[in-house]
Write a protein that binds this DNA or RNA. Structure first.
Lengths: 250, 250
DNA sequence: CTCCGCATTCCACTGAGTGCAAGCCCGGGC
DNA sequence: GCCCGGGCTTGCACTCAGTGGAATGCGGAG
C-alpha cells in the first residue's frame, strides 16, 4: 500500500474509538481525522465499517457517536456490568442502611474506573460518572485498589507526580506509602476531603480468588459522619461480595 | 496477501467481538477461531492487538474475555449508559411508588436491548439481563418500540415468523398489526402473559425530538395488578423523561 | 457569484496481513 | 522415559485490501 508504514489497520480502528471521550462523545469525520492524525479518506472508510457493524452511530446532526452494539458487547466485560450485577443488591442494602452515595470501582492500569453508583438524592453530589476514570491516590476506592495492587503499579504511581485536588490531598510519596500500609493493616481506607472539601469517603476491598478485584465505598458529607463508624458497614458489604466471588475474607 | 478475498481486516476484528455472547463470555483462542471461521494464526494476531488495547482481557484460565476498556468506551453510547443516567432517577421514583420491576429498553434493528432495570426484590423475577436482546413482538417495551418504529421495521417484523413464548403470545401478523394500532391510539402497551405465564407488563414511550427513542415498563405478577391502573403511572414517568429529552408529549 | 469546511469518491501503488506449515509447551497415557 | 493430542505461537513468501493524495460534491456564509 501507499500508507505510512508501522500502523496496523486494527490500531487505526481502535484509535477511532479512543477519540471518543466523556468530554467529546459526538464527533464529525474531520474531528475524528484531526484527533487520530489519520487522513480523512482513511477515517471515512474505517468509520463506515464501524457504522455498518453498529460500533458507531450517526446522529441527526451527522456527528458520529458510540453505537449501541458496542455498549452491548462492552456489557459482557466481566469487570463491567458483570461485576455490577453481582454487587448491585449489596450496594442497595448499603444504601438502605446509610442513605448515602455508594460507589463501586475497579483498577484499570494505573487508574480506577467507576463501575456503578447509587446516588443518594439527598447525599453529597459526586463529580464522577459511571464509566469514568480517576487517579488512584485520592479517593477511598482508589486507596484500597492501590493498597492491594501489584507492587509494580504502586511504584509507578508513587514515582509519578501526585495530583493535588484539595489542600488535604496526600501528594508526598512517602506519606502515601505509609497510608497504603495502614489501609492494608486495618482493611479499609478513609479519604477525608482529599478530592473535594465537601466530602469524605470510606472504602473496603472486594476479594476474588485471584486477589482484590474491586472496591466499594460510601461517600458522605465531611461534617455529617464519623468515618470510623461507617467503616464496619462498608467492610461487611465488601465481605459479603468477596464471599459471593469466592474470595478469602480479610 | 494470500488471504481469502472479500473480508476486510475490520470485519475480522469485529467478528471476534461478535463471538462473545452472554451465553459464552469467555473463549479460548481455538474456540474464537472456530466461531469466526478464521484461521488460528489470524485470530491470534488480531486478538493480540485487541488485548494490547484493552478490548479483550485474558483471565487466569487463559481464556479471552471482553476487556474493561471496551466497556468504558461502550458506556459512552448515548443510547446506553447515557440514556440510563437520565432515566434512572425517574425509574427510581416509579419503583418507590410501585415496588415492582422497572425496565428501560431501546430498539436496535429489529430487536430490543434492555438498558437498565430496577429489580424489585419481592417482585416477579425477570429472565432478561441488562445488555440483553429480545424480540419486539411480545414484551410491553417491545410493543411500544415496534408501534412507533419506522414502517420498514414493522413490515419486516410482521413478515417474519413471530416466535411463540406462551399460549397468549400474539403470533398472527394481522392481530399484531391491530395491537400496534391500539398502542398508538392509547399511548401505552400492555403485554399480558405474552412472555411468561407469571408476568404482565405495561409500557410507555419516551420521546425525543427525533421521535420515540426508548420505552419504559413495569413488570408485575399477572394476578397482582390491574394493567389499566398502572398505565397512567408508567405514562407519567415516560412523559417526564420525554420532557427531559426535549421530546413532544404524547 | 466565490470561498470555506466538511463529506465522499477515485485510482494507482504497495506493505500489512494472510494462511499454511512447522515448532513449542504442557499434561496424560503407556 | 516416550509419544500423542490440544492448544498456542512464530516464520515465511505471496498478494490484495487498504492507503492517501487529489478531485468532486454539497451546503451555508459573505
Amino acid at each position: 500500500m501507499r500508507g505510512q508504514p508501522g500502523r496496523s489497520v486494527t490500531s487505526r480502528v481502535l484509535a477511532l474509538l479512543d477519540a471518543f471521550t466523556p468530554a467529546s462523545p459526538a464527533l464529525t469525520l474531520s474531528e475524528l481525522a484531526r484527533r487520530t492524525g489519520l487522513p480523512l479518506s482513511t477515517v471515512h472508510r474505517r468509520a463506515a465499517e464501524l457504522l455498518a457493524w453498529g460500533a458507531l452511530e450517526r446522529g441527526v446532526d451527522g456527528r458520529y457517536r458510540i453505537g449501541l452494539r458496542l455498549w452491548e458487547v462492552g456489557s459482557l466485560a466481566p469487570r463491567g456490568l458483570g461485576l455490577r450485577e453481582v454487587a448491585l443488591p449489596v450496594m442497595e442494602d448499603l444504601y438502605e442502611v446509610t442513605h448515602e452515595n455508594v460507589q463501586l470501582a475497579v483498577r484499570q492500569d494505573d487508574e480506577l474506573v467507576f463501575i456503578e453508583r447509587i446516588a443518594g438524592r439527598h447525599a453529597v453530589p459526586v463529580l464522577t460518572r459511571v464509566g469514568g476514570r480517576f487517579a488512584l491516590h485520592a479517593t477511598g476506592v482508589g486507596l484500597v485498589l492501590l493498597a492491594y495492587a501489584p507492587v509494580g503499579v504502586q511504584e509507578r504511581v508513587l514515582a509519578a507526580p501526585l495530583e493535588r485536588y484539595t489542600e488535604l490531598t496526600v501528594t508526598d510519596p512517602g506519606r502515601l506509602r505509609r497510608c497504603l500500609a495502614e489501609v492494608r493493616r486495618v482493611g479499609y481506607a478513609v479519604s477525608d476531603r482529599q478530592v473535594t472539601m465537601d466530602a469524605l469517603s470510606v472504602a473496603a476491598p472486594i476479594r476474588a480468588p485471584e486477589g482484590v478485584v474491586a472496591a466499594l465505598s460510601l461517600v458522605v458529607a465531611h461534617d455529617r459522619a464519623d468515618p470510623v463508624a461507617l467503616a464496619p458497614l462498608v467492610q461487611a458489604a465488601g465481605r459479603v461480595l468477596s464471599r459471593a466471588l469466592g474470595g478469602a475474607h480479610g
